[in-house]
Design a protein around this nucleic acid. Structure first.
Length: 283
DNA sequence: CATTTCACCTGGTGGC
DNA sequence: TGCCACCAGGTGAAAT
């Protein structure tokens, strides 16, 4: 479900609500492929640790944790984290901070009870999501494979696609090149840059690549400011929907008129994914 | 190596 | 109402 703007929105919301709070009890459902690190190791590591901060890297939510002496709530960032809990939401995952009495949603696979009484809940009907845990004295700190689309500059961006013989949309979706771009924002950024999704990545001109980099950054920033895109069921950490779906120009607008030229939006399959574009505005 | 296809899951929608 | 095909925000392993 969630791409960079949705994950960023959720991470900010969770951060605001759990920072400084201690995990007192953890419950996990027994779905084997949900856990990158075994569930027992995760719950042992999580219980007793305090949330130092929560942030986004690519499409991952990274919770920085520390084992602090009891009774010492600390909402400052000066505490050195000694562990990380990493949540990937897959296609339909939600990470919610609730009160303990909030009704338990179907497909709730993780519950973290906090000292304050709040709960962090991971809900994911399709179970494409993943939970990972790192103890920083044994494991490497989590790092996204690809570059950060909001920070990457012109030359580095252009270098990602040089010599690549695949469609530019497929390249945008490749998380080891850029991390955080998914199906919605790949289509929307290509539309805004006036580039057809099928164009071979390595054949784009310098000017087109720069237009794409700028469009991608702008569309991601606008989406973050509107709380992400709620196409069917995405909600943030408080259960609130986003509003960027109202700004979509092509995604899920098959047959509807292009906002710029009125030509019907076309849908094709590319890289196994539904792909939407304006045949007039995108060349 | 780079690129493509498929499996992993559940649920919603629309046609008959 | 039921059944079926198709669609959906993602990714990593296997095949080419």
């Amino acid at each position: 479900m969630p791409e960079l703007p949705e994950v960023e929105t959720i991470a900010r919301g969770v951060n605001k609500r759990v920072r400084g709070d201690r995990i007192v009890h953890v419950w996990f459902a027994s779905h084997r492929n949900l856990f990158k690190t075994p569930a027992e190791r995760q719950s042992t590591g999580l219980e007793g640790r305090t949330f130092v901060s929560v942030h986004r890297t690519g499409k991952h939510i990274v919770c920085e944790l520390a084992a602090l002496p009891h009774g010492k709530r600390n909402r400052r960032t000066t505490v050195q984290p000694d562990a990380q809990w990493i949540v990937h939401l897959g296609m339909t995952g939600r990470l919610l901070v609730t009160t303990p009495d909030a009704p338990l949603a179907a497909h709730t696979h993780a519950r973290l009870e906090l000292e304050s009484g709040k709960e962090v809940r991971f809900v994911d009907p399709r179970r494409f999501g993943k939970l990972d845990y790192r103890d920083l004295k044994d494991d490497e700190k989590f790092n996204a494979a690809g570059a950060e689309p909001l920070a990457i500059e012109r030359d580095e961006f252009a270098a990602l696609f040089r010599g690549r013989r695949l469609a530019i949309k497929a390249a945008l979706l490749n998380q080891s090149l850029l991390s955080g771009v998914g199906n919605i924002y790949a289509d929307e950024s290509l539309y805004r840059a006036g580039i057809r999704p099928k164009r071979m990545a390595g054949r784009l001109t310098r000017a087109e690549l720069e237009r794409l980099r700028a469009s991608l950054k702008t569309v991601l920033e606008q989406a973050i400011s509107l709380g992400g895109s709620s196409v069917s069921d995405y909600v943030d950490a408080e259960g609130m929907r986003g509003f960027f779906q109202l700004e979509h120009c092509v995604y899920l607008r098959t047959g509807e008129p292009c906002r710029r030229c009125k030509t019907p939006i076309r849908r094709i399959i590319l890289a196994g994914r539904g792909t939407h574009f304006c045949p007039q505005c995108q060349r």
